[in-house]
Design a protein around this nucleic acid. Structure first.
Lengths: 338, 338
DNA sequence: CTGAAAGCGCTTACAG
DNA sequence: CTGAAAGCGCTTACAG
């Protein structure tokens, strides 16, 4: 049988209250007693039950992480950061891949509630914010990678607008004027912001980006490839593409190759995210880096801060993006200009 | 305050035992009582406490997943499969990225013990199997992706040996005779098996693979690139490479490109794993696919089966690999033969 | 510095 | 078909 706090108390000839105190480093215990009890715990291979502890103390030291898909490299990297940061403060994390489906979201939230997790990090899309508002009254939450305006929550996002501007500036500096944007679903606030920033910078340079030049690529890779194929077969094809995530950019890259175009000489591509994928393609992708580690860390920090004081004013943290120049972008070729 | 089982019992004018029975669908309860109680639970937004339930029933419905790194696409895909399969049976999964470091492993195992998880899936390397044997006496475990011979445990692996053979047969059929293997650490049993299978098939075709033609690439991408660079600068360079995982293959691909060699015309590359990465490179990689989904599912199934009956004979399940031909392999060019 | 006692929210024999 | 009661393994005032 597994040793309990009673076993070590009996063995030490003290009360369980005393043992509890040495476990949690609370109250004042004489040093010798403390050492003696530690020795007994070790000898008995005593592991305090986090379950029993949670039942009384109301803390489970467990966090829920709701994301679309842990198999998506972007979220996997964020998850790793969340895991590490949580672990440092004693928290475990339960992964919940929702595929952005509301019924999966609701089922997961229900189990997280039953398991009494201390907090939830939400990086998944949700049709209606009511669900969100609902849980936020019960469990501390922080939202990651999207905007929520209907009620106050801690939010941490990349500065998507600024990222869009960085992409535009880079392409403009290379002399591009005919550009097309391959966006994710425009339902998603982060995607909209990226496009808005991109368009704004173009506008300031006197270049207008018509709505027809913004194409939605819902499925990432597949749509990225399909949309690009169509584009490149046109007479008046663009010289540069701004892809709103790495997966879309990979699809675009494949399409360009299939059309016999050389990236970056015939077509420049800027992607967004800067996951592992961006380093792995040929050519490697110039990309607007999201600080995935900091996203995860900040989310955890905000959560823990909320545990300590649930009445702090809710924050919205926007993290700077960074332009990483690789080989998928080049000056527009003179032949193209002609 | 959150509603408890007492609240719904009082509201329904029954005992908590009765409520417990309707929650867990145990015993016989008249249908009307049951419906009435369900209605009350709903009205009170009652969520049974999994914590309290775990304390009495000794089941937490939580699984631990120990892997080297959730940010590695291979493990992320396995994790997704574990998550889905677990979720189907009511289990949550806690991720534990160990970086293959023993101290991280031990710390994680310690928290998993304290949290009283029902079982642990171990996909991480461990210096000494003693730790493993230790926990296996306390908590049901299944090991994934590596061999354990020192004591009986459930194990699920890809058939690495057969996979190695498939790689060899493919390259042989394309006429290659000068081949080099880029392995992961040869400490890892799966890597050894892949090499052994590869070598065996070559041997049967009358081609010997000397030890010098097997290079270890510990860091994956970086080492893959470095080793390949060295190789390709030799006079007598190979016409084909067998890379023991996708990351190494990506590195090899990059090195080939840097050396001005065209894959597959000047150099064929076969990789192993068939993660997302294999589809994303240029050219896409011919790869020996590991059935990542089935690996995860089988691990969960074995665990759950063990919950029901802890005395079943331990199994070792080896799942078939599959050759996926893409564009990184081609017939050895005649110029190379001459 | 230490301990007795209540309580956290359930499940499970057992009795009826 | 239903309930009283014990118990799971802790933490936390409170008293001394």
């Amino acid at each position: 049988m597994k040793a309990t706090i009673y076993d070590v108390a009996r063995e030490a000839g003290v009360s369980i209250a005393t043992v509890s105190k040495v476990i949690n480093a609370k109250g004042k215990i004489s040093t010798e007693r403390r050492n003696q009890i530690f020795a007994i715990m070790q000898r008995l291979q005593y592991q305090p039950s986090a379950i029993a502890s949670a039942l009384t103390s109301k803390q489970t030291f467990t966090l829920g992480l709701l994301i679309p898909d842990i198999a998506n490299p972007f979220f996997a990297e964020v998850a790793r950061a969340v895991e590490d940061r949580g672990h440092r403060f004693g928290y475990s994390v339960i992964i919940c891949s929702t595929d952005n489906k509301d019924d999966r979201v609701e089922r997961y939230i229900s189990v997280l509630k039953q398991k009494r997790v201390d907090g939830i990090i939400i990086g998944t899309g949700l049709e209606n914010n009511d669900i969100l508002q609902d849980i936020s009254t019960i469990i501390p939450i922080v939202v990651i990678g999207r905007e929520v305006n209907s009620f106050p929550v801690h939010t941490v996002v990349a500065d998507d607008y600024a990222g869009g501007r960085q992409a535009a500036c880079h392409l403009l500096s290379l002399g591009h004027t005919k550009m097309v944007v391959l966006a994710e679903s425009l339902q998603i606030s982060s995607s909209r912001e990226r496009v808005r920033g991109f368009r704004q910078s173009l506008g300031e340079a006197g270049i207008s980006l018509p709505d027809e030049s913004i194409l939605a690529c819902k499925s990432g890779l597949e749509d990225g490839r399909a949309r690009t194929s169509e584009l490149l077969s046109r007479m008046d094809r663009p010289t540069a593409l701004f892809c709103c995530n790495d997966l879309i950019a990979v699809g675009a890259l494949q399409a360009a190759k299939e059309c016999g175009l050389r990236v970056p000489f015939d077509l420049s591509i800027v992607s967004f995210d800067n996951t592992l994928l961006a380093t792995v393609t040929n050519p490697p992708l110039t990309s607007i880096a999201q600080p995935m580690d900091q996203l995860g860390e900040a989310a955890v920090d905000l959560l823990i801060q909320q545990f300590a004081d649930s009445n702090t004013v809710k924050q919205r943290i926007a993290l700077r993006t960074e332009l990483i120049v690789r080989d998928s972008t080049a000056e527009v070729s003179t032949s193209e200009i002609l």
